[in-house]
């Protein structure tokens, strides 16, 4: 690819946003960074990946943590910062990639090649998707969706000025339950290509 492009995909839990990100990664033939980011970081630092993964996209617990001169004992925040630095380093190196979550629409906002997308879904579609994926009852699926979305919101809103899911913080917000994952991916692909023409 001639031009550098970074696609930031934020998503509601159960919306299928991650599946769309995987699809777009294939369409644009660029790497996808999600929780695999920590595997790469763990390999680079020669540490156990599982020890890092337990703090992935987890909000900081204020009561048990402190900040001193910009340093913190919050493992959640340190792991988040590692990912933010990694994403910026890749962006600075001119690499094109798709990143799922990780406050990327805020962290990478100064990069003109970044396109930020928020994918949401209807409640019914999200419940159905989670029930099928994890073989859960409807009630359990609702609980899981609410819990995960709350966690994502808390995590996001700690690091970012804008609120999670607020359409004003993203270039493009779309409900993928209406057209389905593939057609939604088509629209996003088209939008990203048009943005690239303007770059």
């Amino acid at each position: 690819m001639d031009k550098q492009i970074i696609i930031s995909i934020s998503r509601e839990y159960g919306s299928g946003g991650h599946a769309i990100a995987e699809d777009l990664s294939k369409r644009f033939n660029i790497p996808l960074y999600d929780s695999n980011l920590l595997e790469i970081i763990a390999t680079e630092k020669n540490v156990d990946k599982e020890s890092l993964k337990q703090y992935d996209e987890v909000p900081r617990v204020r009561l048990f943590t402190r900040k001193v001169k910009g340093q913190t004992n919050s493992l959640e925040e340190n792991v988040a910062n590692m990912q933010f630095e990694f994403l910026k380093k890749k962006a600075d190196a001119g690499e094109s990639y798709i990143v799922v979550g990780r406050c990327s629409e805020h962290i990478l906002k100064d990069y003109p090649c970044m396109v930020s997308i928020f994918i949401l879904g209807s409640k019914e579609a999200k419940i159905k998707r989670i029930m099928n994926l994890f073989h859960l009852s409807e009630d359990d699926a609702i609980d899981k969706i609410e819990r995960e979305n709350f966690r994502r919101k808390m995590y996001h809103n700690y690091y970012c000025k804008g609120k999670w899911g607020d359409s004003r913080n993203y270039d493009f917000s779309i409900n993928d339950s209406i057209l389905g994952l593939e057609a939604t991916a088509d629209i996003i692909e088209d939008y990203v290509k048009k943005r690239m023409e303007l770059m």
Binding site: R66, K69, Q71, L75
Partner: peptide, 24 residues
């Protein structure tokens, strides 16, 4: 505890940046 003194926070942060996480 990790939050008892400023030096604790700074030391734990330095370890965490190298991938070595020191929890409570």
């Amino acid at each position: 505890t990790p939050i008892g003194a400023s030096a604790n926070v700074v030391g734990i942060s330095a370890a965490a940046k190298s991938g070595h996480l020191i929890g409570w």
